[in-house]
Design a protein around this nucleic acid. Sequence first.
DNA 1: TTGAAAGCGCTAACAT
DNA 2: ATGTTAGCGCTTTCAA
Lengths: 336, 336
Amino acid sequence: MTTIKDIAKVAGVSVTTVSRALNGYSDVSEKTRKKIELIAKELNYSPNTLARSLVMNKSKTIGLLISGIHKGMIKDDFMVEILAGIDDYVAYTDYDLILFSTNSTKQREKTYSQLIRERKVDGVILQGMKTEDPYLKEVVESDIPCVLIDIPIKSSTVGYVTTDNVLGAKKATEYLIGLGHKNIAMMNGHNFAFVSQSRLEGYLEALNEADIAVNWEWIVNGEFEESVAERVATYLLTKNPEITAIFCASDLMAFGTMKAAKNLGISVPDELSIIGFDDILLASYVTPPLTTIAQDKFEMGYQAAKLLLEMLENREGVHGIYLDTELKVRESTKSR
Amino acid sequence: MTTIKDIAKVAGVSVTTVSRALNGYSDVSEKTRKKIELIAKELNYSPNTLARSLVMNKSKTIGLLISGIHKGMIKDDFMVEILAGIDDYVAYTDYDLILFSTNSTKQREKTYSQLIRERKVDGVILQGMKTEDPYLKEVVESDIPCVLIDIPIKSSTVGYVTTDNVLGAKKATEYLIGLGHKNIAMMNGHNFAFVSQSRLEGYLEALNEADIAVNWEWIVNGEFEESVAERVATYLLTKNPEITAIFCASDLMAFGTMKAAKNLGISVPDELSIIGFDDILLASYVTPPLTTIAQDKFEMGYQAAKLLLEMLENREGVHGIYLDTELKVRESTKSR
DNA sequence: TTGAAAGCGCTAACAT
DNA sequence: ATGTTAGCGCTTTCAA
């Protein structure tokens, strides 16, 4: 492997000159620069980023801390789209991505922040962490720049990008109300997700503004999992046959709810309207196609990467980004 | 950021001793080791892997060269599952993953092998490269260990994992034949994929063994893309109404073919049987659910990672791995 | 059992 | 415009 030392030797100059020439500094004569560049090419030289990072104290890598790289990823394309968005932005920079998958099942003896510090990433993007995750605190409190997906924490080194979940949930609920529904249940995720809190808020707002009394027994948690949602929905629908519509805080949970309805012989959308949240790929393929609130996941990733790099280069940027949602009307909802 | 120097100072020993103690060498007294470990913890020390990598000349990172991180990834979960499989294996090692997405649209001024050399990855996994990709050659000819997904090249530094595509395609075709079909077309990918060659081979084998004459006009290329497949299938089916079954070399192309049939008013599976290859998630959600040959994509990723690490640690392993397929009978095929 | 010293490949003052 | 020197944080001979 050629080093600048080799080049220096061949060119008959010092390593400093080589370094300067190759890095485009102005204080090197055009002649020597040309010579050095030529030799570098001939020797098939590539710089050793390790050495460079060590001395410059920045690695030009950004860490991606993602949870559940395997479990959810297949059916729920949320993570994949985020990743695609991040990649799309990062591809045009000189940063590379290093993946830290926080597989909860595996007993990593090292904490995330240890990993991050060891690998000397310049910044990190966090996705899929629960609000009470001890590591979240650890990372946020460290001085390493990070941007959080769907967790609105802001500081000089922390930014976030998320969807306007309150408004999104409100839109969903209002749509149901507009359809003539009054007995609208909500299948939420769990209490350790900011998005759940926000979506609940939107749901409540919509009900309040329409002067519909809130029935707290109709607000349940499906843990963002299809199977849990199915179980919970089965119970909910059996106990409360008067429910005519359900707003689900994720498409996957909407699928579970649809299954529950099917098993109970409740027809969707004739007897029960179901609306989801996310607009994952499958949403338009299930039967009936799912009406849902679409979030722009790709854009979330893109904006997250953009924000992080802005922070890294000390360019001022907005540290808190809210993305819009869009109602996708399909066939799982019907006017009453 | 604490370094071993800081620890050494506090402990009143040399950096050498600290290094040895922390790395579990035996030639350090239990007493000093304990002391050093304690101090390290108190000072919240993490080793700088950059420095370590530089001197040890290995980085404990493996590069993931994947193509089309955004385009295909959403609908076609192939890449995602591979990634999940890789991650699943790597998670239990002390290696980390660094992502090089070879977005064809972007004009990377650097070649893959440059990226790889600069980042000093210890090994690399390649996915989604066409056989004639100049970079493939470049990487394979370099001395850096790599394992290829779906490209059977073997050398001392190159291994591969792939599906038994010949057998898989044969199974598919035989199933169609067993159903009573004789006029069986094939929608292949393109000529620059080994898998296409193998799947064609399997198709031909099955026909030959059943004494069915091959009609070369019925063998077309859909470029592994849904839209292309739709166009090609439309033409094929219009020209050759006698075709009663089509074996598609990917599920996505099978979807395109289904669309073509639908537009032409050809009912699947009543008038036309369609069988796919891959078994992507969507396969069981489309209407009618797609009969297909399933590959174990997760396992491919897992085995690829396993093989690469075996190569890196000089453990002997099989450099060429073939995985089995499984026929998933659903509702897009019917006996004639 | 421990330490001194060299060096991995690079950049960055500070000369000249 | 170019070179000398020091040093990033670590591992590893070689001595003691």
